[in-house]
Design a protein around this nucleic acid. Structure first.
Lengths: 188, 188
DNA sequence: GCCATAAAGCTAATGTTGTTAGCTTTCTCC
DNA sequence: GGAGAAAGCTAACAACATTAGCTTTATGGC
């Protein structure tokens, strides 16, 4: 019988695909094993358990988000950059509905890779706001507001929380425009 | 052997208390039954299953939030009302960390009580923004922005997503102040 | 007061998932 | 070619959710 040739990476990648298909909360070791054509306990050679799998998925997703945000911001500044990064954020969440919630997990202080990915994502936003002339505490506050607004919008949208017929895309654009204005006139 | 005297309400209330203690995702029928001094299958006389329990918990939590937002808004207008409602929202989430996530669940269209509670919560916000002179699509957009920003802030805070030492309360105040300004100058 | 009945609670059994232990097989390196 | 590490397996157990079917309690009509 040939060997499956797994690795921690391969397991996490399959978990990511599965999470996107069935939802983050329905991600299960049993399903991952079945997908990989392997018995469930075999996974324990690559991940410590279901909790560790979620942790690794968080690192993967955070790194992907960081890369997409950074790419979106490249070569842009001000309102252009803000809109591009906001759109990239939302796009990622819609393309990867299972990975995105994993991003919410607080970075494990003991995992340098996780910390680095999280910092890379935040820095992409921070840099844009720095371009608005924001600095120090103001830049921190502004970054938090950006993350809160965009993340909140994304999760409410994904949960079907917007019932009214008004176009959701337009509401998002309006929100990002309001953020742009707020940053221009920011007073700390 | 005396009877426990349960009811659907009593089960959901205990589930709410438990969720606040152990976290929304660790809410389990087994623990609820144990708390109520009853065997696990006995709960099925009152709730259809774990999914239905989450659904009922969502209704309970949404109704509670709606009441608190409405109370906070009473007798206030403009920036005062905005700040009071935002604070009430955040307070609720911090006092009830297990119930709050249940709020995210989209209202079940087949459950009039759920729909009514959700609408009551949204209306509390909508009314305030109406006081800013916002109407129609603009009011819808503004309401969505408010919900997104506050909800996003709350969940990021709860998840430990704000790593830097900058005071989180101040960041929240800054965000609400920025929302106030944005609504004053709103241009659709 | 007594009994019929519905509801509340129970035990037993089953399926799914996660986890650990310990064995076998495959790959790799000397 | 063989030693040893790593990958995979089966077996066993615990927790949870769920269903079936039984027993007991409360209650309402007579």
């Amino acid at each position: 019988m040939p060997r499956a040739g797994l690795s921690p990476q391969a397991v996490v990648r399959e978990a990511a695909v599965l999470a996107d298909e069935v939802g983050h909360d329905r991600l299960t070791l049993a399903a991952v094993a079945s997908r990989l054509g392997v018995a469930l306990p075999s996974l324990y050679k690559h991940v410590k358990g279901v909790d560790a799998l979620h942790q690794k998925l968080a690192v993967l997703a955070t790194a992907e988000v960081a890369t997409e945000l950074t790419t979106a911001a490249a070569g842009r500044a001000g309102g252009d950059a803000l809109r591009a990064v906001a759109a990239a954020f939302r796009d990622y969440a819609r393309r990867h509905p299972g990975r995105y919630p994993a991003t919410q997990r607080a970075p494990d202080p003991a995992d340098p890779e996780h910390l680095a990915a999280a910092e890379r994502a935040v820095r992409a936003i921070y840099a844009i706001l720095h371009g608005y002339g924001l600095d120090g505490d103001a830049a921190v506050d502004a970054t938090r507001m950006f993350r809160a607004a965009v993340h909140g919008f994304i999760t409410l949208e994904a949960a079907g929380g917007f019932g009214l017929p008004r176009d959701v895309d337009r509401s998002f654009d309006q929100m990002v425009a309001a953020l742009d204005t707020a940053y221009r006139d920011w007073r700390s």
